[in-house]
Each structure stands twice: as structure tokens, then as C-alpha cells.
Amino acid sequence: MVQDILIVDGYNMIGAWPNLRRLADENLLEDARDELISMLADYQGFSGMKVILVFDAHQVPGLGKRYRQSRLDIRYTKEKETADECIERLVYEWLNRRTRIYVATSDNVEQHVIFGKGALRLPARELFIAIEENRKEMRRKIKETEAKPRNSFESKLGDELKMKLERWRRGETP
């Protein structure tokens, strides 16, 4: 079975998606990151893809940081490493016969580089559309589930038996 992996350039998505860009423009970059994490966690849960979110921290001293939040693998690059370099390294590490890797970025140069390494490119706009479609599908499934009777006696009966019981209730002979 092939495992799908999505590697996301975090700040590239924040700059490309209107709702996140608005937060970042209002000096709420942390809120934009949190919203991106929430959106990708939902997407990962619904799509079944493993999602790795990479944030560029190459001008921040240190060894980088890696943690999990909402079952999402989040990475900050190490000192003097750009997000693009980290993404290229991850593609190289993860690529094998049992994985299909998608990289979400709108950086044209990075798209060509990762495509040359064997990964599939996913522009920021396409990922945004896919996430919105997933959200609509989740809402539809939730409504569908809520509309169904929950573990009631009636839900266990077949249509023919329901009709017989209804005729009996009305006093008709079955």
C-alpha cells in the first residue's frame, strides 16, 4: 500500500491564503500559524495523508525544533537552513516505492527542484481548494450522521416490518 505524504511550506501558505495573510498583516503571525495548523490537522484527519508542516527559522539561532500538535508533524528549520532546504531533505529521506510525496508551495523554483527529486507539486491555491472541499464534505457527513436515528429500535427494522407494524397500529389486519 502506498502512503501519501504532504509536506507544506508553512509561511508560503500563510502568504498565499487570504484568511491567513490577513492575520499576518495584522501582526498576528502566531494566530495565522495556529489557524494553519488547525486547517492542516483537519485535512490530515479526513484525507488520511501524513502531513509535515515546515516553518522557516533559518535566521533564528539553534538546532531547529520538531514537535507534534493535533497529530501534525511540525518542524522549524535549524539555524542557516531555509524551509526549501529542509523540504528538499525531507523529500529525499521519505521518497521510496511505498510513498507518494506532495509538496505544497507556490515557490516556482522550489516546485521545479522537488519535482526533479521525484515529489509531486501542489500549489498553495490547490491545497486551499482541497481543504475547503474537505471541510464541506466533513460538514455534509456530520449532517448525514445527525439526521440518522441513533441506535433506535426503529433503525433496526426493515421497511416491510415497519409497514406491517404501522398497519397494526392503525387497527388494520396484517
Score class of each variant (00 low, 15 high):
57 A>M: 12
59 Q>P: 01
59 Q>F: 11
62 G>N: 06
72 L>P: 01
72 L>E: 07
74 I>D: 04
74 I>H: 00
76 Y>F: 15
78 K>W: 07
78 K>T: 00
79 E>C: 03
82 T>E: 06
82 T>I: 07
82 T>L: 08
84 D>R: 08
84 D>N: 10
85 E>V: 11
86 C>E: 15
89 R>Q: 10
91 V>A: 02
93 E>S: 11
93 E>T: 09
97 R>G: 15
97 R>I: 07
99 T>A: 11
101 I>Y: 06
102 Y>S: 00
103 V>Q: 05
104 A>P: 05
104 A>F: 04
105 T>H: 01
107 D>L: 02
111 Q>Y: 09
111 Q>V: 11
112 H>C: 10
113 V>Q: 03
115 F>D: 13
123 P>C: 06
124 A>I: 08
125 R>P: 02
128 F>V: 07
131 I>C: 03
133 E>D: 13
134 N>A: 13
135 R>E: 13
135 R>L: 09
136 K>N: 07
137 E>V: 08
141 K>M: 11
142 I>D: 09
142 I>Q: 03
143 K>L: 14
143 K>A: 15
143 K>S: 15
148 K>Q: 12
148 K>C: 03
153 F>H: 09
153 F>D: 00
157 L>F: 02
159 D>L: 12
161 L>Y: 11
161 L>F: 10
162 K>N: 02
162 K>I: 04
163 M>T: 13
163 M>H: 12
